[in-house]
Design a protein around this nucleic acid. Structure first.
Lengths: 157, 157
DNA sequence: CTCTTGTTTCACATATTCGTGAAGTTACTG
DNA sequence: CAGTAACTTCACGAATATGTGAAACAAGAG
C-alpha cells in the first residue's frame, strides 16, 4: 500500500492540533507530528520545511526546542552537510521522565508551602496531603513503566 | 502559631510560578494558589482581588476558567450577595480525570494516524505502539487512584 | 420600588509570542 | 583556499493573549 500523502498531511495537522491544545507550542508540535508520520522516523530540515510549508528559521527554532526536551535527536551523516532529525524510539519514556521532574518541582514548592503555613494549620494539612499524593504518584511511576515494558515484550514475543 | 502573611504571599507567588511554567495561565494559577493557601479553602472575589492585587475583572476571568476545569467551586451563602470560591477537596482526583480525557483525545488522533498511514507501514507500526502505550497508561489509572485511596485511608486510620 | 453592593461584560491598551526574511556562520567539496 | 550548501541568529511585523477601567447587570435590603 502506498502513502496517501494528502491523508498523511491531514493527520499531521490534526495531531499537531491536539498537542497544541495540550500545551505544546505550535511549530514544535507540527514538526514532531511530521516526524512521527514518517516511515524512517527521520527527516532533514529541508524536508520538514517543505512538507509543513514553513521557513528554515521556523524549523530551526522548533527543532532546537524538541532536541532540548530530548524528544528528537539530531544526526548528521559523515560527508553530508545536512542534519537529519529523528524521533527517539523511547519518546514516551522520555516524556515520563520529564513528567517526573515536573512532579519533583511541584513537590518542592508544596514543601515550601507547608513550611510557610505551618504543618498544623488546616491549609498546611491540605498542602501536605497534596504533597503526599504527588510523592505517591512519582513513586508508582517506575513500576508502571516496568509493567509496560513487560507487557510490550510479551506482545512482541 | 499565627500566619506569617508575608511568607504566605511569597509562597503563593512561587507556587503560581511553578504552575505557570507547567502550562497554566498566570491568573488562574495565582488564584488557585491563593485558595490552596487559605485555612478555610474559601475566599470571596474581593479577598482574592485584595491579596493578589488584581482587578475584580481579572478575578472573574480566572475563576470562570477554574470552575470550568472543575478545580474550584462557586458557592453563595443564602442571604449574601458575595460569591465564595472554594478549592475542591478532590482537586487532584479531578486533575487525574482530566488527564484521562486528554489521553482519550490523543488516542483518537493516533488511531486516525494508523488508518492514514496503514497499519503495515513502519510509521503506522510506530504509531500503533504509541497508541498501545497510552491505552496501557489509561488502563492503569483507576488502579493507581484506588491504591492511593487505600494508602491514604491507612495513614489516616 | 429604589438603593446599594458585588459580579460580569466589553472595548481598549499593553505585553508577549510567533514566524519570516535577510544577513551571518559553519563546514564539506574540489 | 575559495566556493557553496545548509543551518542559525537577529530584528522586525503580525497575531494573540492578558489585564484593566468603565459601564452594564444581578440581587438582596430597606
Amino acid at each position: 500500500m502506498e502513502r496517501d500523502e494528502a491523508a498523511v498531511l491531514t493527520f499531521i495537522e490534526r495531531f499537531a492540533g491536539v498537542l497544541t491544545d495540550s500545551g505544546f507550542a505550535r511549530m514544535p508540535a507540527r514538526v514532531f507530528a511530521a516526524l512521527l508520520a514518517t516511515d524512517s522516523g527521520r527527516l532533514t530540515a529541508a524536508e520538514l520545511a517543505g512538507t509543513l510549508r514553513i521557513s528554515p528559521a521556523a524549523v530551526s527554532g522548533a527543532v532546537r526546542y524538541l532536541v532540548q526536551l530530548n524528544l528528537v535527536g539530531r544526526e548528521r551523516e559523515p560527508g553530508s552537510r545536512r542534519d537529519r532529525y529523528r524521533v527517539h524510539d523511547d519518546v514516551w519514556y522520555e516524556a515520563a521522565v520529564r513528567r517526573d521532574q515536573m512532579l519533583l518541582r511541584w513537590e518542592g514548592s508544596l514543601r515550601e508551602g507547608v513550611a510557610a503555613l505551618g504543618a498544623a494549620s488546616p491549609a498546611g494539612v491540605r498542602m501536605a496531603e497534596s504533597l503526599a499524593f504527588f510523592e505517591f504518584v512519582r513513586g508508582e511511576l517506575p513500576d508502571l513503566l516496568a509493567r509496560w515494558h513487560a507487557q510490550r515484550g510479551e506482545r512482541r514475543g
